[in-house]
Design a protein around this nucleic acid. Structure first.
Length: 842
RNA sequence: GGGCGCGUAGCUCAGUUGGUUAGAGCACCUCGUUUACACCGAGGGGGUCCGGGGUUCGAAUCCCUGCGCGCCCACCA
């Protein structure tokens, strides 16, 4: 069989990627019964392009999916994308701006048309990239969160929750993004520690010469102050409790209230209260029945209520307020102060706390069963530590603001009646108010938080609320693979919704993976310019190499430091396998199909052990271990030893058998290379992806490992001697091997291998090594480097002394397990033999 | 203010419930173009497992503590 000298993945990967999709190789029918393995993709944003984080996550998923499929389970990886409300709307909005079009002028309907157009044209990009990367999804089941079916599910879920009293509308202080022009949930606000200042402002107390000094990080909000609080135990309280202060700049008297929120000993002990622009103050305002004056509007500009500052941006207003106060001599003190500033996680604009009417979801009743499901093990986190994070959030969960002032998304199915003022919430669009029958109803303009529909993903994608064969066959899904950053956003909500609507968990395990970082462990980011683009890199090194590099570094939960060097090493690995194939394919395949040499018997044994541990490690999410072992099996065992020894055999038929099995073993980690080579073998069956994954079998201990170990030791020691003595690698050296028993048998029956591998002209004597207590002794016709050997002897003596000390310790003998003691005794004997050999070589 | 995690070779990281000379990849040094592969082979150097205490027959691994560094959650002006 002809095969090229260098493996060029670019020549093969696109072909197989296309073929896998066209042949619908990964389509699975919803036949009932076990075993099944199902997983829904964490849907990437439609606006997205494949980045290293996706690549990593998908490499894990695909390896696992392929493994399960090859084990003969009914395996589904359901792909799809998320409409990503804010992100998408922002993107299309920017596009419009470039065309000089204003979104509001365009109108809701036209705008949505534009977004759908965009989605149709570009929304499939990431899906195409996944196909090219070889992800073995069931593409016939691709879903989008705004598909009719999924929208239907959203509607059903909303109505049910509303009817249950879990969704309500309330006027409350919220996080407002002045740029995205929408409210955000607490999770969508990123807190960032910022160096700011603490301004101490004096408020004159009416009817007194006293001034009450308040401290604030946001002086501009003072314009909306409606009270000042001091602690009830404040010594000044009796005197101040019924007084008012004159709010500077605003010509307004505001009361002094007593409240625990003013901490004794902090600052001057008094706190300004701005119910309209601070969550704490909002609560305080409710406690004391204070008016709320909005001085900052939706665009973060000062309102008419801000008097002379009306119309200014909030930061400009801050400057001017500070300047005015200074002019009035009311600025007592300004000090540097660290504070945490909330920013919109989409656009990084500083959010503004504002009071507004929004839709909320009561979370406590939903969270309780979700906590229980993890507590009692129906859902298991891997690594399990993440359960703590989950519990902490879930046990302190707050109501979820689910409405967004956007157009792109699932519109809230609530109709407001202008006749009676009540809401109509319905599964079908109503034409009149369900309370008074008036036809003066209008649908709520807001849409739902994107994560509302994401939360339904594990069952909405399978046909819920209908009772479908898919749902019966694949729910609960087996596993969720995702990043820690969306445990709350997504995983927790799926668990709550799954239990609420399906009465069962959405998945049985949650595997939380780490972050892909650069070689210096820095987060990859476009602004830093340290990203490794999978689209470029997959093409350059091959998708298999990238996958393998990611997986071999994927210790559970840990971040990975990725570099091109690392990927290049795995590309070399693929090339190594390719070249091993080149050698193999040059040999005849015909033959007995049975092991004909020690090499055959040994590699079969190694392969078996490798298969056993690969299966075990896959089951435990140890892809790194599986990858590492396969790497060493292929490169170390198969190439360096097996093939080198095999070159002396005439019958290569068994090598083909081992090789084919080893390809299957590697397939989940390097799907393209293995498919290409497997196809070249012309095996019966359509694709290696559908072939059976080798399982480790219990095979009797034949001593083959021990035999091979003897051979390897002879060869390795000879090579070391040669190298240390600067012998030309081409030159054959004479050697005498003293050996009896098994060592003699191994040496005689593999004399040719030993000679070839070590380049020795070997003379084997069936005699005990002269003067040495060892199984065998190899003497080469070389002058030895005495100093070096003496150093080795000294080191070994130290090791022996250590182990001797432990062995002669009665407490160790008495308390250590028998196995450990026996092991140490055996090891001690080995050390002694090794030492004897070293001494004899001098 | 709570919670989680990290510190092992020059670099990036493994190290399963404590147990047998602490490993890998890359980098480094020496030698080598034997027809699978120079994208390779053979050999080699390199570690007070962050410091200090403790538990134990035995600690990189468990406990305490100090130092350094990440991350998450939290309405302290």
């Amino acid at each position: 069989m002809e095969i090229e000298k260098i493996y060029e993945p670019q020549r093969f990967e696109p072909h197989w990627a296309k073929w896998w999709v066209e042949e619908q190789l990964f389509h699975v029918e919803p036949a009932p019964g076990d075993p099944y393995f199902s997983l829904v993709i964490p849907p990437p944003n439609v606006t997205g392009s494949l980045h290293m984080g996706h690549m990593f996550e998908h490499s894990i998923i695909d390896a696992l999916i392929r493994w399960h499929r090859m084990r003969g389970e009914r395996t589904l990886w359901l792909p799809g994308t998320d409409h990503a409300g804010i992100a998408t709307e922002l993107m299309v909005d920017r596009q419009l701006q470039q065309e000089g079009i204003n979104k509001r002028d365009l109108g809701r309907e036209e705008f949505l048309k534009r977004v759908w157009d965009w989605k149709r044209q570009h929304g499939g990009r990431i899906v195409e990239q996944m196909k090219r990367a070889g992800d073995s999804c069931d593409w016939a089941r691709e879903r989008f969160t705004m598909d009719p079916g999924l929208s239907h599910a959203v509607r059903e879920a909303f109505v049910r929750l509303y009817e249950k009293g879990l969704i309500y509308r309330a006027n409350y202080i919220v996080n407002w993004c002045p740029r995205c022009q929408t409210v955000l949930s607490d999770l969508e606000v990123e807190h960032e520690e910022t160096q700011g200042q603490l301004w101490h402002i004096a408020y004159p107390v009416n009817g007194s010469s006293m001034k009450l000094v308040v401290a604030t990080t946001r002086p501009e909000t003072m314009l909306g102050d409606t009270a000042v609080a001091i602690n009830p135990r404040d010594p000044r309280a009796p005197d101040l409790r019924d007084r008012t202060v004159a709010l500077p700049l605003m010509d307004r008297d505001i009361p002094i209230v007593l409240d625990e929120m003013a901490e004794l000993g902090f600052g001057s002990g008094a706190v300004k209260i701005t119910p309209a622009h601070d969550p704490n103050d909002f609560e305080a305002g409710k406690r004391h029945n204070l008016p709320s004056i909005q001085v900052i509007d939706n665009h973060a500009k000062m309102t008419a209520a801000a008097g002379q500052f009306a119309g200014l941006d909030r930061y400009e207003a801050r400057k001017q307020v500070v300047a005015e106060l200074e002019k009035l001599g009311l600025m007592e003190k300004i000090e540097p102060y660290k504070l945490s500033v909330g920013k919109c996680h989409r656009c990084k604009t500083v959010v503004e706390p504002l009071v507004s009417q929004q839709w909320w979801m009561k979370m406590k009743p939903l969270a309780e069963p979700a906590i229980k499901a993890v507590e009692d093990g129906r859902i298991r986190f891997v690594p399990e530590n993440w359960a703590n994070t989950y519990f902490q959030w879930m046990r302190n969960i707050r109501d979820w603001c689910i409405s967004r002032q956007l157009w792109w998304g699932h519109r809230i199915p609530v109709w407001h009646c202008s006749a009676c003022g009540k809401f109509t919430v319905a599964r079908e669009d109503p034409t009149k108010c369900s309370h008074c029958g008036s036809d003066k109803i209008e649908q709520d303009p807001d849409v739902l938080d994107t994560w509302f529909s994401s939360g339904l993903w594990p069952f909405s994608t399978l046909g819920w609320p209908d009772d479908t064969p898919d749902l019966r066959a694949f729910y609960p899904t087996s596993l969720l693979v995702t990043g820690f950053d969306i445990i709350f956003f997504w995983a927790a909500r799926m668990i709550m919704f799954g239990l609420e609507f399906m009465g069962d968990v959405p998945f049985r395990q949650v595997h939380i993976h780490g972050l892909v970082r650069d070689a210096e462990r820095q987060k990859m980011s476009k602004t830093k310019g340290n990203t490794i683009d999978p689209l470029v890199i997959n093409d350059k090194y091959g998708t298999d190499a990238v996958r393998f590099a990611l997986l071999v570094s994927a210790a559970p939960g840990g971040d990975i430091a990725l570099s091109e060097e690392r990927i290049d090493a795995e590309r070399a690995f693929a090339n190594k396998i390719w070249n091993a194939s080149r050698l193999l394919f040059s040999k005849p395949r015909e033959g007995s199909g049975k092991p004909v040499s020690l090499a055959d018997r040994w590699i079969a044994h190694r392969l078996n052990a490798c298969a056993e541990s690969a299966n075990r490690n896959f089951a435990q999410h140890r892809y790194d271990q599986t990858a590492d072992e396969l790497y060493h099996f292929w490169w170390g065992d198969f190439c360096d030893w097996y093939l080198e020894m095999k070159k002396l055999d005439a019958d290569w038929s068994f090598a083909y058998i081992v090789y084919e099995k080893a390809l299957r073993l590697l397939h989940p980690l390097m799907p393209f290379l293995t498919e290409e080579l497997w196809q070249r073998l012309g095996m019966p069956g359509k694709s290696i992806a559908l072939a059976e994954y080798p399982r480790g079998e219990a095979i009797p201990e034949t001593g083959v490992d021990a035999e091979m170990a003897i051979l390897q030791e002879i060869v390795t020691s000879a090579r070391a001697l040669r190298a240390e003595n600067r012998v030309d690698p081409k030159q054959t050296v004479e050697g005498v091997l003293f050996a009896t028993g098994r060592a003699h048998d191994v040496a005689t029956s593999n004399a040719e291998s030993i000679s070839r591998l070590a380049r020795i002209d070997l003379n084997i004597r069936n005699e005990p090594p002269p003067g040495v207590q060892a199984a065998f002794l190899l003497k080469l016709a070389l002058k030895v480097d005495r100093a070096k050997v003496e150093k080795e002897i000294a080191e070994l003596e130290k090791v022996i002394a250590n182990s001797q000390r432990q062995l002669s310790n009665d407490a160790f003998r008495a308390k250590a397990p028998e196995k450990v003691v026996a092991g140490m005794l055996a090891k001690q004997a080995e050390y002694q033999a090794q030492l004897a050999k070293l001494r004899a070589s001098l």
